[in-house]
Write a protein that binds this DNA or RNA. Sequence first.
DNA 1: GACCCTATCGGGAAATACCCTATTGAATCC
DNA 2: GGATTCAATAGGGTATTTCCCGATAGGGTC
Lengths: 210, 210
Amino acid sequence: MIVDDHPIVREGYSRLIEHQDDLEVCGQADSKVDAIRQIMEHPPDLMIIDISLKDGSGLELIKDIKAQFSQIKMLTVSMHDETLFAERSLRAGALGFVNKQQAPEQLIKAIYQVLKGKVFLSPEATERMICRSIGSDNYSDQSPIERLSDRELEVFEQIGEGETTRSIAQKLNLSAKTVETYRENIKHKLNLENATALTRHAIQWVLEKN
Amino acid sequence: MIVDDHPIVREGYSRLIEHQDDLEVCGQADSKVDAIRQIMEHPPDLMIIDISLKDGSGLELIKDIKAQFSQIKMLTVSMHDETLFAERSLRAGALGFVNKQQAPEQLIKAIYQVLKGKVFLSPEATERMICRSIGSDNYSDQSPIERLSDRELEVFEQIGEGETTRSIAQKLNLSAKTVETYRENIKHKLNLENATALTRHAIQWVLEKN
DNA sequence: GACCCTATCGGGAAATACCCTATTGAATCC
DNA sequence: GGATTCAATAGGGTATTTCCCGATAGGGTC
């Protein structure tokens, strides 16, 4: 099952997957709620989940699926830099991470690997995670943005997309107060003076992260 | 010809396009240089160009193509909010803009429209552009930003630099109230919803200017 | 002289930012 | 294996900002 909020991207996955004799796409969803609904109808062996969805982060979806349907294997995809999301994905419950810039063959490889219940990461991401778990992983080589929690990062991204506090709250089904709290946390963690600086950094980050 | 730096996305486009009897994908590129190289080998009738590429903005590619190969028609796609890029795309030389969140049928529709040499935009983007140009036919070929008065432009630039209303007022020796008025004026002239949108456009303008 | 644009401000309500505090559950740390 | 940190969630207030309503005064222009 494919979960991505861009129809054209879902087409791309479908084409790749159905090109393999032993793989089949059993469903497509563009949001968390739609994904959960479809899982209950036709539970898949594996889900390919994009990090950014219409109604929140794919990370949330991964956590939910792991809690409710622990037998379903998950592979995260994102167009973002994997240093940001590879580790978060695995912690949330996925078995692998693939960047959209990677070659299609990598995705196929990842699918088979994850179906076997094995972890799939790029060599770079693997090394990063190993480096971090051993020895002194001082935060010094870490981007401050990596220190944001999953939720905070999500809100940060939304701010960068031009969403207001209110609209973010609606989209993520949270109280505006909660979003405000995240904004404050982000400001502290990134050492930003005020709302303007926060907006500016978020917008620049979104524009430059590709 | 498809220009996008995500192989999986290119697959999606290919599948959609080749599903039409009278359309054919003659090339794929993931960067500006690759695109230009391929154009010289096999010039296409139409190019589908993503805004964010490996080696810079798709807007630059559009400008280059318009300058060198004026007969090639171009359609811009982006995952970002179209308010940011639709107008810029047309200004750069594309004939249409499609958001990746839109339905695949929209893309197909856009392709045929652009092949006929006609403009394709979403109804919302069309209305936006019309709203901006009505009541000022003599300005209609001007960038909306050029319609800002000197003072307004000055404030706009400061906003883009990350300055707050208060600090701009101090810097320009004005009442904060005056700066607020300019912000409102700018918002009206550029047809922007709220302070967030204003900030976003100002930041982007400053980044692009350099 | 009527009209429009620009530069400059104020009033006042609504929205937001900002700072503090709090609960719950999970993870981690001696 | 209780203490402690951290993440996610959100409410209570006050300070600021936004936003929409004017307003005045000077310059063009037709």
